[in-house]
């Protein structure tokens, strides 16, 4: 049995190594030749025009692409040195280590408490430790102060921004090493967006974050490293143009296309 101390212990932050990763939907190759290292305990932003494969790449990291059927991923993706597409890897186990927050807040139709406890219950965390774990997760998602004492309330009664932070807490409750975020603030108002960004900044010391965003300013504000992706034409698959320190990418990109995209969006 796992002890309380172990339940609340922060897992190490994960690091991803992607080598020559390609993704195909049926016969159509959507993304090809991606080499990328995602550093632990940092925020990596994936940017690029829509349709450039950002979300596709993100979904490779927790094998959510498997659920779409008809998707083939080739190349090598390692999490802390383990090949996550190896034959003996159960995607269900992988997803305990790699959490995800979606574009639109999607709390389950149940109470706040049950939402956060959903993942741990799935993985057999004993009841006696649940209260502590729920509180800790809500605290880390910066929602605790707003919902303490109302944990039995239905999740749908929260505002959009609160719902999204609840979804972050829900994902944190499985103690992931990496958290994937697919445009987590695009459906929210500016104040809620600010709160989510603050939460991300606080979280990155104990969980690696990969965030997809179409908002350049946001990428510049919150990420440590930025990867720029592009699909130049429908006939050719999308690819990774360059990746580097966020400040470098935004001030002094080495590729012309990155510069054009960033200045175009800023200007």
């Amino acid at each position: 049995m796992v002890s309380t101390a172990e339940t609340l212990a922060r897992p190490k932050c994960g690091a991803f190594d992607l080598t020559d990763v390609s993704v195909a939907y049926g016969d159509e190759v959507a993304l090809s030749g991606v080499d990328l290292r995602i550093e632990p305990a940092s925020v990596t932003a994936l940017i690029g025009p829509s349709g450039c494969g950002k979300s596709t790449l993100l979904r490779c990291l927790n094998r959510m692409n498997d659920e779409l059927g008809n998707v083939t991923v080739s190349g090598k993706i390692q999490l802390d040195g383990d090949d996550i597409y190896a034959r003996d890897v159960d995607p269900v186990e992988l997803r305990m280590r790699v959490g995800q927050v979606f574009q639109k807040p999607n709390p389950f139709p149940m109470s706040i408490y049950d939402n956060v406890a959903y993942g741990p219950r799935t993985h057999g965390v004993p009841k006696s430790e649940m209260d502590l774990l729920v509180e800790d997760s809500l605290r880390r998602a910066a929602l605790w102060d707003e919902v303490r004492g109302h944990l039995k309330k239905h999740a749908f009664e929260l505002s959009g921004g609160q719902q999204q932070r609840l979804c972050i807490a829900r994902a944190l409750a499985t103690r992931p090493e990496v958290m994937l975020m697919d445009e987590p603030a695009s459906a929210l108002d500016p104040i809620s967006t600010q709160q989510i960004e603050d939460t991300i900044a606080e979280l990155k010391s104990d969980v690696t974050i990969v965030i997809v965003t179409h908002n350049m300013q946001q990428a510049a504000r919150i990420s440590d490293r930025t990867a720029f992706m592009l699909r130049e034409s429908m006939e050719r698959p999308a690819f990774l143009v360059e990746v580097g320190d966020t400040r470098t990418i935004f001030t002094n990109p080495s590729d012309k296309r990155t510069e054009a995209y960033i200045t175009g969006r800023f200007g």
Binding site: N62, M64, E67, V92, E93, L94, R95, M96, G99, Q100, F102, K104, N106, F108, P109, Y118, G119, T122, H123, C167, R170, A171, T174, L180
Partner: peptide, 14 residues
């Protein structure tokens, strides 16, 4: 909504 299924799967639920 499909979102709910995705959220649950992403939490490592079967």
């Amino acid at each position: 909504p499909q979102d709910l299924r995705q959220a649950s799967l992403a939490l490592g639920a079967t």
